[in-house]
Design a protein around this nucleic acid. Structure first.
Lengths: 355, 355
DNA sequence: GTGAAAGCGCTAACAA
DNA sequence: TTGTTAGCGCTTTCAC
């Protein structure tokens, strides 16, 4: 099959509408300063011809691409398949679509890919980047920032250096949410409150642990067991916990998946939830959180909204031509002319039956 | 911050190397027909200047974009977050990256989005599309095919009409894999072999059921329970099954998630696996399949490879300028000049302890 | 084998 | 308000 019908150009539309290319261009780009009847005539010509602007031609002159890269570092199957991430991506997609921006997905694995991604971003093929880098020691974020592309991070980056302040990111209030959860358990009269952590090289897990410690300042260290955000990890940690501290009467799990594993072990060991042991999760991942036995009390974070906000912040900063990103996102943070370095969204405790 | 250093152009490289733009262009695009010393000189200039071709300018003249859209219809959280899908996306990403193509992600929800995606694809912003449409009645595939964009589908599309033959798709041998699983159970001497299906409006689930029926031609209909590819669905179905047919001695679950739910219920009801009831899953989803109790015997499908193959088929068809896609992908199928309409990858039975 | 020149389709000064 | 014009950076004939 040979090339299909060639797409109509501005020229064609202009001819059909009996105006100049410039006028058509104005109409197509919002129509400011063009008289109504002309706008209408052009509009009709556009519709009749099925005209769609050629992005390449437009980019060439505007030097913008209306395209944003979403970079996911080291997508271990688990991380990438995480509903948490999927939802954020969805929020991002919606926001980008609403502003007619393309979502260019970049998955990386291994060091070689890092340089590849760096080159790609520095190559100026996209206007900005949304970056998910989950591990403390990931070199990618630094690389990307050096590429000079406006960037917003998903989750608080874990760098130690001074540049940290310069990073724009969107996160939920992991620490505060954790505090709420543990305080709720304490309010229930529980005194032996355990915590099953996530992988501690991720800031979200570290922050939740910090929140737990905020409340349990002088708690028994034996009440903290390390998990990995998976049900299997939750089972393992819960078993350890029960062996180590048979008197545990509450568990704050770093996420719902972990909590579901813990619940299983508690049932298996004949502990009643919440009577003997109260359990709280994190995420409010549905339908899981509603379908556990008993339904899970948990800390909800506005996942999709976080994605939307990331995109909104980035697009806002692009409009303002601030290469560092941030600024004027509209969602939150940043009161003055200074762009926000981090926007932290609040969490909500959702009470069900497990605590 | 004002615009950073302007990127070097072909012109700049040409000046530095003391050649014409045309020569630089030739070198950058493979260097055929340019004498070695010149190639080297140009190469050096490129490196020194850190030159990266401007894709927009290139697209404008070549009318190609080196970009492929990945369309995911109606990403219900569950579907989209499915590790199965995540892995396929990874395979796609690798293959596209290897051929210097961009991956443009398109997530759709609802009818409005369908037309939006149709317009986008018809708008010629990408060279082709990889489409995941999971439901039998999805109007998107038809829409996309009418847009005239080279397309490869992930999974056998569920259309009924004559056009079905025209669709290029990549799938695993769901039916054959199911047959293998059930035959294996029969070979173990099991006679009351049940099947927990997936959502039957998806071809993969329907095909696995068909495979089950191929072997259990005159089986007891009560031995088939409908699930939904989730652990919770598996639990529910397993309970029904045990109530309905207490003598069940084997279960073929439509996927590993379902199997894990079934295993839980079997344990809860005191049935030993595999002694009392043998269980087989589908996918070989790791680490889940290895961590169940007991480790799960399952049907493995080459998930990431399916993604790679989709991309390979599409890129191959683009090279050959066949608007219908398919043809010369290299992976399989298609013996003559005719493009393959479907490539079905083989599955493998992985024996662990559950059957 | 290499260079000169003509656009690809669009936007943005600038003129009218 | 509208039209004219000059490129954006690249590939690709076509001469040499």
């Amino acid at each position: 099959m040979t090339d299909a019908a060639p797409r109509p150009t501005l020229e064609a539309v202009a001819a059909r509408a009996g105006v100049s290319r410039a006028t058509v261009s104005r109409v197509v780009n919002g129509g400011d300063g063009v008289r109504a009847p002309l706008v209408e005539r052009v509009q009709r010509a556009v519709d009749e011809l099925g005209y769609v602007p050629n992005r390449a031609a437009r980019s060439l002159v505007t030097r913008r691409h209306d395209a944003v890269a979403v970079v996911i570092a080291e997508p271990e199957t688990r991380v990438f398949a995480d509903p948490f991430f999927a939802l954020q991506l969805r929020g991002i997609s919606k926001e980008l679509t609403a502003h007619d921006n393309q979502l260019v997905l970049l998955l990386t694995e291994g060091r070689d890919d890092h340089t590849r991604v760096g080159r790609y971003l520095a190559g100026g093929h996209v206007d900005g980047a949304l970056v998910f880098s989950l591990h403390l020691d990931d070199p990618l974020p630094g690389l990307i920032r050096r590429a000079g592309v406006p960037t917003v991070f998903g989750g608080r980056p874990g760098w130690r250096d001074d540049d940290e302040r310069a990073a724009v990111y969107v996160d939920s209030d992991n620490r505060g949410g954790a505090r709420d959860a543990v305080r709720h358990l304490a309010g229930l009269g529980r005194t032996r409150i355990a915590h099953i952590t996530g992988p501690l090289d991720q800031t979200s897990a570290a922050d939740r642990l910090a929140g737990y410690r905020d409340v349990m300042a002088d708690g028994d260290p034996a009440l903290v067991a390390e998990g990995d955000f998976t049900p299997a990890g939750g089972e393992r940690a819960m078993r350890d916990l029960l062996d180590r501290c048979p008197d545990v009467d509450a568990v704050f799990a770093a996420n719902d998946l972990t909590a579901s594993g813990a619940l299983r072990v508690l049932r298996e060991r004949g502990r009643r939830v919440p009577d003997d042991v109260a359990v709280i999760g994190f995420d409010d991942m549905l339908p899981l959180a509603e379908q556990t036995e008993p339904p899970l009390t948990t800390v909800r974070q506005p996942i999709e909204e976080m994605g939307r906000l990331m995109a909104r912040l980035l697009l806002g900063s692009l409009r303002h031509g601030d290469a560092r990103a941030g600024g004027g996102g509209g969602g939150g943070g940043g009161e003055g002319t200074e762009p926000p370095t981090g926007v932290v969204l609040p969490t909500t405790l959702i009470r069900r039956d497990s605590a």
